[in-house]
């Protein structure tokens, strides 16, 4: 694949996404300024602290450029990145990009002592995915056009709509690249 995937690198686990993409032979570029989005074919919003990432998006003039970029390019948001993709967040400290119509609930699973790893069910692959959840957010009130892509017990943990995908767990912390592969193959169809 010749296209370059941007990875937002303001704060958080961006380097782990670079490693996942490199395993798949996908070129990537760290994004800290709006101009760096140029020539990127897709964008990953990584996990980290959503209050920090939200503030730095504004301070670095990336908020509007990413919204504009997302109109025509696929975006994958993970954990804090998923919160940034929501249309609504249960916390005024975060100003989301509103790329997907759902509500994000911060720290839905509680503090770090309640973080865990467990198998989740994917709708696009019969084999389960062993997923780390780190102070993970919840996906609430998805609108009708949103497709559920993965569940853990009763909870929705991954959704997709059009080009975009959002998930509350961390595939980049595992050696399993199926989530990244799914998003990249899905984005080829748009």
């Amino acid at each position: 694949m010749s296209k370059t995937v941007g990875v937002l690198a303001l704060q958080g686990a961006y380097q782990k996404h670079v490693e996942s993409l490199e395993k798949l032979g996908v070129a990537c570029r760290l994004i800290r300024k709006a101009g760096e989005l140029e020539n990127c074919a897709a964008l990953i919003l990584p996990g980290g602290e959503s209050t920090t990432i939200s503030l730095l998006l504004q301070e670095n003039g990336l908020y509007q450029p990413i919204k504009f970029f997302a109109q025509n390019h696929p975006v994958m948001g993970v954990c804090a990145g998923m919160i940034m993709m929501a249309s609504e967040v249960d916390d005024k400290r975060v100003t989301p990009l509103a790329l997907l119509p759902f509500k994000a609930q911060r720290n839905f699973y509680g503090r770090q002592v309640h973080s865990f790893t467990d198998d989740i069910k994917l709708t696009f692959d019969s084999k389960p995915f062993n997923a780390p959840f780190i102070r993970a957010p919840g996906i609430k009130n998805p609108s009708a056009e949103i497709k559920v892509l993965a569940t853990h017990k009763e909870e929705t943990v991954m959704i997709g709509c059009g080009k975009h995908v959002a998930l509350s767990f961390h595939p980049e912390l595992t050696d399993d690249t199926r989530i990244h592969e799914y998003w990249l193959s899905r984005s080829n169809n748009f």
């Binding site: 690198a9 303001l10 704060q11 958080g12 686990a13 961006y14 380097q15 782990k16 996990g47 980290g48 602290e49 920090t52 954990c79 804090a80 770090q112 973080s115 865990f116 790893t117 780390p132 959840f133 780190i134 102070r135 961390h170 912390l173």
Partner: peptide, 16 residues
Amino acid sequence: DDFKVKVGLAEMLKGG
């Protein structure tokens, strides 16, 4: 798995 989850939070603090 427990250790992975602990290191996972440290990963989220990187760059901060």
